[in-house]
């Protein structure tokens, strides 16, 4: 690729009229890569039943009475007499139709249990993500503009402190300070209605946010410092553009590209962290459900939540890739330098 590529000019322009189609192609290709990954994960999740120590029938039976009729029913329902791959095929077909099996506790469908708990976790994760991105980008930008000052160092130190203490430790600390001592926020429960719920979830959301915010702060800070030094920012200043225009159209937009990449990691980190935080704050979310299911060896529920979490991680990555191409047209044309 050496002497040949620099002759840009005419060659690079060929795809210009195809902004739309090339984006569609790109997204389609990405989705196509996601599907085999999802299958691979579902296979791993399915194998859980067989990896778990003991007889799969026992695992699936849980605490129910083991009379021959029930055993036979379970064998028939899970096709345990068939070869492993055939069992997987049946299971996958059920999952695709939205049937994740029956929890060993209380004989309820796993899907309906998950549906009950999903709301709290989604609320918590969204609130926390908003906090991380909003506050993180703001702090990162402030640190970049005040580079080398005490404020800059304080922000970076706060970030490092946050990332070094696990979410449940930060959670307990916040709980004690703002809940027990100051009584500003409730100390447990999810709350009812939007505002009440937001009030109840503020502390857990902060605990989660602080644990990953450093990533966003540091990446925003580094990207912004780099952007401020760019020729096109200098050129924009030389042309007398307003500082607001330079900040938003030039510095912020360009530095968001690495931040979007990090945002994928951050969202995944938040959802993973939700497992601890929900337990710490006794919130009836998916995380608490998972922990509970593991303690009770409720294999169908574990399968359900694991599958949901993994699919979520894949979808977040897919979303990041798509957002990425929307922000940076260079990627659509396969011309990324940095």
């Amino acid at each position: 690729m050496h002497g040949a590529t620099p002759s840009t000019g005419s060659t690079a322009i060929s795809g210009r009229s195809g902004d739309g189609p090339s984006l569609v192609i790109f997204v389609t290709r990405r989705v196509a890569i996601t599907i085999p990954l999802l299958l691979l994960i579902s296979f791993g999740v399915f194998a859980l039943v067989h990896i778990a120590p003991g007889d799969p029938v026992r695992s699936l039976l849980g605490a129910r009475a083991s009379d021959p009729a029930t055993l036979a029913a379970i064998r028939a329902r899970y096709h345990l007499e068939d070869p492993f791959l055939v069992q997987y095929g049946y299971w996958l077909w059920q999952v695709i139709r939205g049937d994740l099996g029956v929890s060993i506790q209380g004989n309820r469908a796993v899907t309906s249990i998950i549906a009950d708990r999903l709301g709290v976790t989604i609320f918590l994760s969204l609130m926390s993500t908003t906090l991380v991105l909003g506050l993180g980008i703001l702090l990162g930008a402030v640190a970049a503009f005040r580079r080398g000052t005490r404020l800059d160092r304080a922000i970076v130190m706060f970030g490092v402190f946050g990332i070094s203490s696990p979410a449940f430790v930060t959670g307990i600390f916040l709980l004690y300070l703002f809940g027990v001592l100051l009584h500003w926020f409730p100390i447990f429960g999810p709350g009812r209605g939007f505002l009440d719920r937001a009030w109840h979830l503020t502390l857990p959301a902060f605990a989660l946010a602080i644990s990953v915010m450093a990533i966003v702060v540091k990446i925003t800070r580094a990207a912004m410092i780099e952007e401020l030094d760019r020729d096109y920012v200098t050129f924009a200043r030389a042309r007398g553009l307003s500082s607001r225009r330079i900040l938003f159209a030039y510095v912020l937009r360009n530095s968001l590209i690495p931040v979007v990449t990090a945002a994928g990691l951050v969202v995944v980190g938040i959802v993973a962290g939700a497992i601890y935080v929900e337990v710490t704050f006794s919130l009836p979310g998916l995380g608490a459900l998972t922990v509970d299911a593991i303690q009770k060896r409720d294999i169908p529920t574990i399968q359900g939540t694991t599958l949901l979490f993994s699919a979520f991680v894949l979808l977040v990555n897919l979303a990041v890739d798509v957002i990425y191409t929307v922000i940076d047209p260079r990627i659509r044309f396969g011309r990324v330098e940095s």
Binding site: T234, A236, R239, R330
Partner: peptide, 20 residues
């Protein structure tokens, strides 16, 4: 004053324009 009374052009054409 910049831009309207006095403006500037820089060296590298590939880095002078906002890539986005």
């Amino acid at each position: 004053i910049r831009g309207s009374r006095m403006s500037m052009l820089m060296q590298d054409p590939f880095t002078m324009l906002n890539p986005l």
